[in-house]
Every structure is written in C-alpha cells, then in structure tokens.
C-alpha cells in the first residue's frame, strides 16, 4: 500500500535519513522502532511531506508517487498524520478540531463522522464543546487521532502515540489502534515502548542513525535478541 524506496532527507546541511526503504500493507500495523533521534519522526514527516525528501527518493501510495508533493495533496490522497506532541488546536472546541480534519468520503470506506469517532473515543463525546486547551494529555492524544481520522485516511501515521502517557491510558490507546486495524486501516506507528509495540504491531522496521537496520515480523524480532540489544538497547 505504502512503499518507501531510497528515502533521503536533510535538515539544512545535516543528512538525517539515508536510503530508508520500507513497506506498509493494507490491514497491517507496522511499527518503526529506534532511539530518539534515530530518524523515525523524520521518516514520517517526509512521508507526509512536511520534510522535503531529497531528489531520487520515492514514496508511492497505492502506486502513485508522493515524493515532492505538498502535505495537503498527500493528506488528500488518503494518508493521515498524527504528530508527536499532539498539536491540537487549543483555541478550538473538540467539534471544531474535528471540522478542520474533515475531508470528503473515500470510495470503499464508511466515512468517519463525529458520532462514529465518539464510539471509539467515548471521552471526546462527553466534551464536544470544550476547547482543546482545557483537556488532559490523554484526551488530547485521543482528539489528535480522531481529528486525523475525519480526513478518512486509508493509512494513518502515528508518531509516538504512547509518549508521556500513563500506562492505563496507553492501554486504551492500544485498544483504539486495534479497532482502527479492524476497520481496515493500515497503521504505521513509531514507538520507543516495546511492550506497547509488541501488543499492537504485526511488522517492525528498526531505524538507527537515519538508516534501516532490520525489518521483519514482530515474532521474528522476538527471536533476535542480538538485534534488539544492538539497536533498541533492550
């Protein structure tokens, strides 16, 4: 569904990503693992177009080339992006936040409505007119995912969804991701929390110093203690 080949990215003169290649399949959850600063967030930002991929990089989504396009074009093609640090619009209410994310329905998918989202994130339904700035961290994290879903994406990029959340909220997050997968969405998430990754993901890509060091299924990773020790410091 999403195929990244030879992705290179720079911040100014700093070469951040080196020939990153990965593939995400429909109905699967792919996790990007790696240390902070390894390049996971940059990979996601390059896919959604917030960081410009270097010449020669290829990012195809359903066979269509996305590299070099503007973020809004990529989002409209059906790629949803949920940033780390949440970045909800604190001055806007829950409903207005959702309205910003709204896009036309897509063929073959039941369009997301606030009502359907509230079924997955019940807390949000109880605070529809509350400004985003007056929500707790966990509630904001739910809102940022719901907001992206309003664009009816077919693949969703989740950058560090469990960071800074209490374990009990992280469990709710894992349940929500499982529900999205059941809806037929492809999910790519970046994580440091291996326990969380192991619970939700089907496949993993390990990134270290801006390059892919290992990829395979999660069960396969469990059998590679050396890989885990070398790149994940487990």
């Amino acid at each position: 569904m999403l195929t990244v080949t030879g992705l290179n990215a720079f911040y100014g003169r700093a070469h951040i990503l080196h020939d990153v290649s990965l593939e995400a399949r429909a109905g699967e959850v792919l996790v990007l693992l790696g240390r902070n600063g390894a390049g996971k967030s940059t990979t996601m930002k390059s896919i959604i177009g917030l960081v410009r991929p270097a010449q020669g990089s290829s990012i195809t989504f359903d066979g269509v080339e996305m590299a070099g396009r503007q973020p809004h074009e990529i989002a409209r093609a059906g790629l949803g992006y949920v940033p780390e640090e949440r970045r909800i619009f604190t001055d806007l209410t829950v409903m207005e936040n959702l309205a910003v994310g709204r896009q036309p329905p897509r063929d073959g998918l039941a369009p997301w409505t606030p009502e359907r989202l509230f079924a997955i994130f019940p807390n949000l339904g109880r605070m529809q007119d509350r400004p985003g700035g007056r929500m707790s961290g966990g509630e904001q994290q739910m809102l940022t995912i719901a907001r992206t879903l309003m664009g009816n994406p077919r693949l969703i990029l989740l950058d560090e969804p469990s960071e800074g959340l209490a374990p009990v909220i992280v469990e709710q997050m894992a349940d929500a991701i499982a529900k999205l997968k059941a809806e037929g969405l492809a999910v790519v998430l970046s994580e440091q929390n291996l326990h969380f990754a192991a619970r939700v993901a089907d496949a993993a890509v390990i990134i270290e110093k801006g390059a892919v060091r290992w990829q395979g299924t999660l069960p396969a990773l469990e059998n590679e203690p050396e890989v885990k020790a070398q790149y994940l410091s487990v």
């Binding site: 989002a75 940033p83 970045r87 806007l92």
Partner: peptide, 23 residues
C-alpha cells in the same frame, strides 16, 4: 469553514496543511 481553518492555522499552520488543507 474558511474561518475555522483560519483560526486553526493561527495556532499551527503546518498541522493544518498535514490535515489536507491547501496552505
């Protein structure tokens, strides 16, 4: 909708773009 987008962009225009709005 234009107005809500303007208010959202006032806070975080990059995020608005990532949500499919033509900046």
């Amino acid at each position: 909708r234009f107005g809500v987008l303007v208010r959202a962009a006032t806070q975080d225009r990059e995020m608005v773009a990532a949500l499919g709005v033509d900046q």
